[in-house]
Design a protein around this nucleic acid. Structure first.
Length: 153
DNA sequence: GCCAACGTTGGC
DNA sequence: GCCAACGTTGGC
């Protein structure tokens, strides 16, 4: 079992939207970054837990937890010319992009803000704080997970 | 809306 | 395969 963090812009899709979905489950599609793609198709497994992170919004930070309920499979939006995520170079034989399905587990009573995360002395490795924050799907160590989870409660 | 940091593209 | 130019991300 592993831990992850997925970013989303809540104006487009928030943790509250996830709760509203049938079975509280949604395909996490639209990821168009190779490093993130590799995590999605190689590393992320059913049963892994995911922090849902809200970016580019009023309260930036970790909003809750979801669980992976379906492992990496081709993101169908890459084949759809109508989609914003269409990729002309992707074919069903050779898909480029992958997604997983996540199911809502928990919404925190408050969003754990990024500024607090950055201020935590033992949170130093997560790409959220080391990579200028540009990676949208990233691993979280168990140690970091537990600290962040405790801080959010 | 600004702008710094990052990823991708494409010419050579 | 280098690297400059360009586009995008995302915090503020």
């Amino acid at each position: 079992m592993a831990y992850w963090l997925f970013k989303t812009e809540p104006d487009a899709f928030s943790i509250d939207d996830l709760v509203q979905r049938p079975n509280q489950t949604e395909p996490w599609d639209g990821v168009r970054n190779y490093q993130a793609r590799n995590f999605l198709c190689d590393s992320i497994k059913v049963g892994d837990l995911v922090f849902i992170y809200h970016s580019s919004c009023k309260t930036v930070g970790i909003a809750g937890v979801a669980e992976v309920v379906k492992g990496g499979y081709p993101d169908v939006s890459q084949f759809n010319p109508e989609s914003n995520y269409y990729d002309i170079k992707a074919t069903t034989d050779k898909p480029r992009w992958y997604c997983v399905d996540v199911k809502h587990v928990e919404s925190f009573n408050r969003v754990l803000p990024l500024c607090e995360i950055k201020a935590m002395p033992n949170i130093t490795e997560i790409p959220l704080v080391t990579k200028g924050g540009r990676l949208s799907v990233m691993p979280v160590t168990e140690n970091e997970w537990q600290q962040l989870y405790a801080a959010a409660k």
